[in-house]
C-alpha cells in the first residue's frame, strides 16, 4: 500500500514537471529555431514570449471539436488519450535523483520498452479511425517505422543492461556512479550504443529526420490530419513528452543519470535531459527528412546489424575486460 501511495504521489509530481518542461520546451524550440533562421521567434506573449505555449494551449482548447462523419468515433477520441498515457507512462521508472523515482521496478528497462512500444496502437488507431486516406497512409508508415525501429532501440538499450548486469534503471545509474558512464567508457560498445539509442528514439517519436508519418509538406498532418482542438493538442503534447522522456531515459542509461563530478542530484539529471532535448531540436531544424525506403533501409540494413554487433561487444567486454563488473 505504501508503494502504491508513494508511486502515485511521485507520479503526479513527475507528470506535472514533465508537462511544464514540455510547455517551456516548445517555447525554447521556437526561439532556438528562430535564432537558427536569423529571426526572433515568439516575443509578444509575456517577457521574451515565455508564455507563448500557454497561449497556444488556450487557443487549441477553445477550438471546435470536429469528428469526421464516417470516422470511428470512440477510437478517434481514444487514440490521443492513449498516446498521451503511453508517452507519460514511460517516465514512471526513470530515477530523476537518488530518491525521486515513481516506481523502482525490477524490470525498469522492459517497462520503458513495452510502454514505448504501446505507442503503435494509438498511432494506428488515429490513422484508421479518421476515415481519411492521408491519415491512413501516415498511420501505416508510422506503424511500420515504429515497429522496425523498435529493434535497434532494444539492442541499444541492451548494452547498458549487459554492462551493469541489471534491468533496474536505478541500478544501472548506481553502476555508472561506481564505474564510468556508459557513453564514456567502454568507448566501443558505449558511445555507438548511445548514438544508436538517440537515432532509434528519434525514429520512435517520429521526429525529423524520421518524421515521414507526419511529413508536413507531404501528408498534410499525417496521422493527425483530422484532429482539432483538444485532441490535437494531446497528440502534439504526446510527441514532445515522448521525446523528453526518451532523453531522460538516455541520460539515465548512458550518461549516468543524476551522477555528476560534484554534488550529484536532480540538477545533473535535469541538465543532461534538457541538453539531449535541445540536441533533438537542433537536429530537427537542421536536417531533411528521410524517404520511407531510406528509413527502412537504414534501420534493417545498417542499424540492426550495428546493434547486434554492439550487444556482442558488450558481452565480450563483460567477459574479458579486467574489473568490468
Amino acid at each position: 500500500m505504501n508503494a502504491l501511495v508513494h508511486g502515485a504521489l511521485y507520479g503526479v509530481v513527475i507528470v506535472l514537471c514533465l508537462l511544464t518542461t514540455v510547455a517551456f520546451g516548445v517555447w525554447f524550440e521556437r526561439k532556438f529555431a528562430g535564432r537558427m533562421q536569423s529571426r526572433l521567434g515568439p516575443t509578444r506573449v509575456g517577457p521574451y514570449g515565455l508564455l507563448q505555449s500557454f497561449a497556444d494551449i488556450i487557443k487549441l482548447l477553445q477550438k471546435e471539436d470536429i469528428i469526421p462523419a464516417d470516422a470511428d468515433g470512440s477510437l478517434f477520441t481514444l487514440a490521443p488519450v492513449l498516446a498521451a498515457l503511453c508517452a507519460l507512462g514511460a517516465a514512471a521508472v526513470v530515477p530523476f535523483s537518488p530518491t525521486v523515482i515513481a516506481s523502482d521496478l525490477d524490470i525498469g528497462v522492459v517497462w520503458v520498452l513495452a510502454v514505448g512500444g504501446l505507442m503503435v496502437i494509438p498511432t494506428f488507431a488515429a490513422g484508421w479511425s479518421s476515415n481519411n486516406k492521408f491519415a491512413l497512409l501516415g498511420g501505416m508508415r508510422a506503424v511500420a517505422q515504429s515497429v522496425s525501429y523498435g529493434v535497434p532501440l532494444v539492442l541499444a538499450v541492451l548494452v547498458p543492461v549487459i554492462l551493469s548486469g541489471t534491468m533496474r534503471i536505478s541500478g544501472i545509474v548506481a553502476w555508472q556512479t561506481s564505474h564510468h558512464w556508459v557513453a564514456v567508457w567502454p568507448v566501443i560498445p558505449g558511445l555507438p550504443a548511445f548514438g544508436l539509442y538517440m537515432l532509434a528514439m528519434l525514429a520512435e517519436s517520429n521526429r525529423i529526420p524520421f518524421d515521414i508519418p507526419e511529413a508536413e509538406s507531404e501528408l498534410v498532418a499525417g496521422v493527425t490530419t483530422e484532429y482539432t482542438g483538444a485532441k490535437f493538442s494531446l497528440f502534439y503534447l504526446s510527441e514532445y513528452v515522448h521525446t523528453l522522456v526518451g532523453s531522460a531515459v538516455a541520460s539515465a542509461l548512458f550518461l549516468g543519470g543524476w551522477d555528476g563530478p560534484f554534488a550529484p542530484g536532480l540538477h545533473w539529471m535535469a541538465l543532461k535531459t534538457l541538453t539531449l532535448f535541445a540536441l533533438v531540436y537542433w537536429v530537427r531544424w537542421s536536417l531533411l527528412r528521410f524517404r520511407s525506403d531510406q528509413l527502412m533501409d537504414l534501420c534493417w540494413r545498417r542499424l540492426t546489424p550495428l546493434g547486434v554487433a554492439l550487444v556482442l561487444a558488450s558481452a565480450a567486454w563483460v567477459q574479458f575486460a579486467p574489473g568490468a563488473h
Binding site: 524490470i107 522492459v110 513495452a114 510502454v115 512500444g117 496502437i121 506503424v143 534491468m167
Partner: peptide
Amino acid sequence: ASFLAGAQVMLYVGGVVTLMIFGVM
C-alpha cells in the same frame, strides 16, 4: 512474473496486435 508481464506487453500487444491490424487493413 514481472519480466513475463513486460515481455507480454512488448511482444503481444506491440507485435502481434500490430501484425493483425496490418493484416486486417
